[in-house]
Design a protein around this nucleic acid. Structure first.
Length: 231
DNA sequence: ATCCCGAGGG
DNA sequence: CCCTCTGGAT
C-alpha cells in the first residue's frame, strides 16, 4: 500500500486501522464505569490527571451516597473530598462536582444537557469533558481532544494545529461524525501503548506504514537534527 | 522522574 | 500564555 500524501487519504486508512485495532463504539470503549449521563459527567471530571482504574475505585461509593444529581447538589464538600481524595486535585474536583450538580439542578431541571454549548457552561466541564459526555453517554457526535489526540493527530499528519479546538475542527472535517467518539478513544489507546510522547515505538506500530512521522526519510531527518542541534 | 482522556484563574 | 490544583502507580 502506497503511503498516502494527503490528510484525507491518511485519515481514511488511519480510521480503518484504528477501528480494527480497537473494535467497538465510544460507549463500549469507554473505560469509566458509569450508568447514565450524570454518572459519566462526574466520573469524567474525576478522571483529570488520574487513571480510569483509580476513578472506578471511588465512583461506586460516590454514586451509592449520591445516587442522583440532586443528591450531589446538596452534598457536604468535606464528605465528597473524603470519598474522591485518592483521585488527586480533590478540592478542585469537589468544587467542580458540586458546582456541576447545582447547575444541572438549578438551570436544567436535573437533566444533564446534550449540547456542547450548554455542557461547557457547567463548572469543571471543559470542551474535552463535554465531548466525552456527548459521544459516550448520549451517542451524539463529539470528538474529545486531549494531549494524546493532539499529538497523534499531528504525527499522523492529520492536522498541524496546536490549539485543541483547531485540532478538533481538523479531525472532525476528516472523519464521519459517527466515528468521532470511538476515534478519539482509539487514538488515546494507541497514544498510551505505542505512540508515546517521548520515543514513539514506530517499530511495533500498526500505522507506521501510513504515518509521515515514521517515514524513513522523516526519521532520518530528525536523527540528523539531533546530531547537529545548531541549525 | 514521568505518566494518568483537564479546567479555571491570574 | 502560564500557573496551579493533587494523589497514586511505575
Amino acid at each position: 500500500m502506497a503511503r498516502p500524501r494527503t490528510p484525507a487519504g491518511r485519515a481514511k486508512i488511519v480510521d480503518e486501522r484504528l477501528a480494527s485495532l480497537y473494535p467497538g463504539d465510544a460507549a463500549s470503549l469507554c473505560a469509566l464505569d458509569h450508568d447514565g449521563p450524570y454518572q459519566l459527567l462526574a466520573a469524567t471530571i474525576l478522571s483529570a490527571q488520574c487513571t480510569d482504574a483509580r476513578v472506578n475505585l471511588v465512583t461506586p461509593q460516590l454514586f451509592a451516597r449520591y445516587p442522583a444529581v440532586e443528591d450531589l447538589a446538596v452534598a457536604e464538600p468535606s464528605d465528597v473530598e473524603e470519598i474522591i481524595r485518592s483521585t488527586g486535585f480533590f478540592r478542585a474536583k469537589t468544587a467542580s462536582l458540586l458546582g456541576m450538580a447545582r447547575a444541572v439542578v438549578d438551570r436544567y431541571g436535573t437533566v444533564v444537557p446534550e449540547s456542547l454549548e450548554d455542557l461547557v457552561t457547567l463548572p469543571g466541564v471543559g470542551r474535552k469533558t463535554a465531548n466525552v459526555v456527548r459521544s459516550v453517554a448520549f451517542g451524539l457526535p463529539g470528538l474529545p481532544v486531549d494531549t494524546h489526540v493532539g499529538r497523534l493527530g499531528r504525527r499522523l499528519g492529520l492536522t498541524r494545529q496546536e490549539d485543541p479546538v483547531k485540532v478538533e475542527h481538523d479531525l472532525c472535517s476528516l472523519l464521519p461524525p459517527r466515528r468521532w467518539g470511538a476515534f478519539s478513544i482509539q487514538m488515546i489507546l494507541l497514544g498510551r501503548q505505542v505512540c508515546v510522547a517521548r520515543g514513539p515505538r514506530c517499530g511495533i506500530c500498526r500505522l507506521a506504514d501510513v504515518c509521515p512521522s515514521a517515514d524513513p526519510a522523516a526519521v532520518g531527518a530528525r536523527a540528523t537534527a539531533r546530531r547537529r542541534p545548531d541549525r
